[in-house]
Simulated assay, not measured.
Amino acid sequence: MKKVVFLIIFGLFIIGCVQKTYKQTVIYTLKTSHPEEIKTVGIRGNDKPLSWDSNTELIPLKKDSLYQIKITYLTGYKFTEVKFTINGDYELKDMPNRRIDFNPSGTTHYNAAFNQASK
């Protein structure tokens, strides 16, 4: 009997510790002024659907100068971290990742320039 009560209490404790998740959408807009030919512009990051292992390609709004992508996260966190890539090469080498704080409304607009840290 004690084992059953213990298992029930333990089960309720585990269920109560689950962090609530929310949909957070970020619209990333990236300006580039890259002197070499741009083949791909991508983003990598901490949280799914992004990853640090592979690029998610941005869509060109204006070829070789302006790119955009809309990413929806299912997360319990209030921020995420990303870096952009051109032709697979990371920006901001030896510098911290870009931190994007989610807007409580659920949609965040993030504007950046490649290889220029946000202020």
Rank of each mutant, 00 (worst) to 15 (best):
N111W: 09
R99I: 11
E91W: 02
T107V: 15
A112C: 08
F102D: 11
I100M: 09
F84V: 00
P104C: 11
N103I: 09
E91N: 04
N115I: 03
F84K: 00
Y90L: 08
A113Y: 07
A112G: 04
A112N: 03
Y90R: 06
L92T: 00
F114G: 06
N87G: 09
F102N: 12
K93M: 08
Y110L: 09
G106E: 15
T85A: 02
P104I: 15
S105R: 11
D89M: 10
N97P: 01
D101F: 05
P104T: 08
H109D: 14
F114T: 09
N103E: 09
F102G: 02
G88L: 03
N115T: 07
P104M: 08
K83A: 05
E91R: 01
P104N: 09
T108S: 12
G106F: 10
N97H: 13
Y90H: 13
A113V: 10
H109Y: 14
H109W: 15
D101W: 13
H109V: 12
N87M: 07
A112V: 02
F102S: 12
N111H: 06
N97I: 01
S105F: 05
L92F: 02
N115R: 03
L92G: 01
P96F: 06
P96W: 05
H109Q: 13
T107Q: 12
M95S: 14
P96K: 14
V82H: 00
F114S: 06
E81P: 01
V82R: 00
Y110A: 10
M95H: 07
K93G: 05
R98A: 06
A113S: 13
Q116R: 14
H109P: 02
D101M: 12
A113Q: 13
F102V: 10
P96I: 05
A113L: 04
V82C: 02
G106M: 07
K93C: 08
N103Q: 09
Y110H: 08
N103D: 10
A113C: 12
M95E: 14
Y110K: 13
E91T: 02
K83E: 04
F102E: 05
T108Y: 03
L92P: 00
F114M: 13
N103M: 10
H109L: 15
E91A: 01
I86K: 02
G88T: 08
N87H: 08
F114C: 06
F114H: 07
G88A: 04
F84D: 00
